[in-house]
Design a protein around this nucleic acid. Structure first.
Lengths: 242, 242
DNA sequence: ACGTCGTACCGTACAACATACGGTAGAGGT
DNA sequence: ACCTCTACCGTATGTTGTACGGTACGACGT
């Protein structure tokens, strides 16, 4: 259940080349996808069931299947839909462009955390996904990198952003559900003599002590730290090409 | 359903401070976790059901609940179990240590792809998870970074590795299921005039052309590319501290 | 205006899931 | 020999995606 549908079944829907007409109910692909996205934003991807989507549209469950072959195709449509915000190209030099894209991607993941539950790689090239891919590559255009290097650099940034967003998003939803940092350490209390054993785990013990005094870095600054390091590393390669 | 159990319910199991005795069936926490891991390795996390685990152990489904409060706790136990390979510390300078850890983490994700479906952040500090955290920090010890910087650097590497592994793992399982690269582009064929439209998506069009001639970079070299860039970036910071 | 047909829409049914609940039988203590 | 505790399990419930077989409505030919 955790893979994309065949592009063959998703692409005609993504590009709307096989849209079925609506009769009296106003049911269209667009309406179904919109309802699904709203539900997912509000209550998570787990709340997106064929029943819940149909109910929100005031329609029988099985009616959805007239317009969408199944749930996987609905997921593919939802993904392409929320990438609509990646239309216009960012300004500045390659570094600013990459940073802007990374931050926008991170923000999109935080706005639609269910994106992180979907398969990560190779979604079908719908209109908005294609536009985003084009924009990502354009950010590195004119740097003297080869096509393969551009692809690898985009992939590296994408991987980092994906991972970082996943950690931050989970922390955020944990916090919302009362399973936050405080609760986490409270529950650990009876086991801290095992976890912070200075014999067994000396570095963790010491760093935990020091971090307690320094104050913890939050996810935002941790993201900026990693993004900065990665861009410095890519800049090093670009500099060596010139 | 997609969150960790309360650490309060997982920790006694993780540290085996509340193990129930087995009667005639040989049922223990360890046996249950081992069976679950084997099923997940073979057929994915989706195949790990209370029924399938019980069946593999020759035991009634509900008997598992004597030893494990629920499925979430089982997930937490599975995670800690496969981190047992992170015991010994890697050799070399900080750079080699970090690279070795990153590669080992990536390999673990590829060996146990279901790890990527579990929540990413803040698993309960079981014995092996704690050991891994200690080892990660130790890799950056003696570099002159502050505790907060060490944490951020570990987090950055972890995020990148997690994301990269997620992409690579999905590509691998897609390939295994006959949904590989070849099939992907075959299915796209009827839509390539839309996807590679040089008017709408000029950079994607050009890079796709060039990459066709250069040959595609695989996931392994893409991983090494990103790891190298990230380590160069971290090295830049360390150099500035000295 | 009327008959006919394609299909948008939907009610019911089924298999798979986690797990609540209430037993049962067998091991260990006295 | 008897009692008690609990490891083990059968059954039942609510939820999921979706297969299957209708039904009734919009459009079109005459």
């Amino acid at each position: 259940m955790n893979s994309w549908p065949d592009p063959g079944s998703a692409l005609p829907l993504l590009w709307r080349t096989a849209e079925r007409p609506s009769r009296g109910s106003g049911l269209t692909i667009g309406a179904i996808v919109e309802a699904a996205v709203l539900i997912a934003d509000a209550d998570g991807i787990g709340a997106v069931t064929m029943r819940s989507v149909a109910e929100r549209l005031g329609v029988g469950t099985m009616s959805l299947y007239t317009h969408v072959p199944g749930k996987r195709e609905l997921y593919a449509l939802m993904l392409d839909r929320v990438f609509a915000d990646a239309a216009e190209k960012p300004e500045g030099d390659w570094r600013e462009r990459c940073a802007a894209i990374a931050r926008q991607d991170r923000d999109r993941y935080l706005r639609h955390p269910w994106l992180l539950e979907l398969p990560a790689a190779r979604p079908a090239f719908g209109p908005n996904v294609t536009a985003k891919y084009d924009r990502d590559l354009a950010a590195l255009d004119g740097t003297g990198l080869t096509a393969a290097e551009m692809n690898a650099a985009v992939m590296s940034l994408t991987s980092f952003v994906y991972g970082a967003a996943r950690f931050q998003s989970q922390a955020r939803s944990d916090e919302r559900d009362g399973r936050g940092e405080r609760r986490f350490w409270q529950d650990h209390e009876p086991f801290m003599h095992l976890v912070l054993d200075p014999e067994r785990f000396p570095t963790a013990h010491r760093v935990a002590e020091e971090a307690r005094n320094e104050g913890d870095a939050d996810h935002d600054s941790s993201f900026e730290f990693g993004l900065e390091r990665l861009l410095v590393g890519i800049g090093d390669l670009i500099g060596r090409r010139a």
